[in-house]
């Protein structure tokens, strides 16, 4: 009787140990993207809701985010919109590729718009999904980006092209403004 009890107990321990390993397997896989986002955000710029203008990627200046595209000028904003709204405005190049993309805190992309959807200028309001902020009351729906998480990253891509003077592209890159709106 006692031997059967011991075997059962050891079996339960064994199953519990395997389950624990499985739980930590999935936990590690689930947490990895959040860790990556935090690590990149802290390495690139400790400030939130402010623009970071990157130079054209090179082997020397781009050793943080893998697979940089050397044909692009990038700008980014590490955002934190808990209980607030972030207004993002700027100019869009008229004859080369441009896009604004939003990534939630696990680095997955949930929004993208490109130059063909903008007419010279852009204006977006970034708010948390489900936000009932009065600041959004009179804003057209197409200008609101709802983020599934309170923090994340906005990434701008400007294609360096023969059709567009590089210095003009840099000026456009620097035309972007981010403003945290308070109620």
């Amino acid at each position: 009787m006692s031997t059967t009890k011991n075997i059962t107990r050891k079996g339960i321990y064994g199953v519990a140990v395997v389950l624990l390993a499985v739980v930590f397997y999935y936990l590690t896989i689930w947490v990895t993207p959040y860790y990556v986002q935090n690590k990149i955000a802290s390495q690139r710029s400790p400030d939130v809701n402010t623009l970071r203008f990157a130079k054209r990627p090179s082997p020397e200046n781009n050793r943080v985010v893998p697979l940089p595209n050397p044909d692009f000028l990038y700008s980014s904003i590490n955002y934190d919109i808990k209980d607030s709204v972030l207004k993002i405005t700027g100019k869009v190049p008229d004859s080369t590729y441009w896009s604004i993309a939003a990534y939630q805190s696990n680095t997955t992309n949930f929004f993208v718009a490109n130059d063909s959807q903008a007419d010279g200028n852009f204006e977006y309001y970034l708010a948390e999904e489900g936000s009932t902020s009065a600041l959004l009351k009179d804003i057209p729906k197409e200008k609101i980006i709802y983020s599934p998480t309170a923090s994340g990253l906005i990434l701008f891509r400007y294609l360096i092209s023969k059709a567009y003077p590089f210095n003009t592209l840099v000026d456009l890159q620097h035309s972007v403004k981010a403003e945290k709106l308070a109620e």
């Binding site: 990895t32 993207p33 896009s99």
Partner: peptide
């Protein structure tokens, strides 16, 4: 998603 976040961070859809 974990692999993309480590080796090909911030792709577009």
């Amino acid at each position: 998603i974990a692999q993309i976040s480590v080796y090909a961070t911030y792709p577009l859809t």
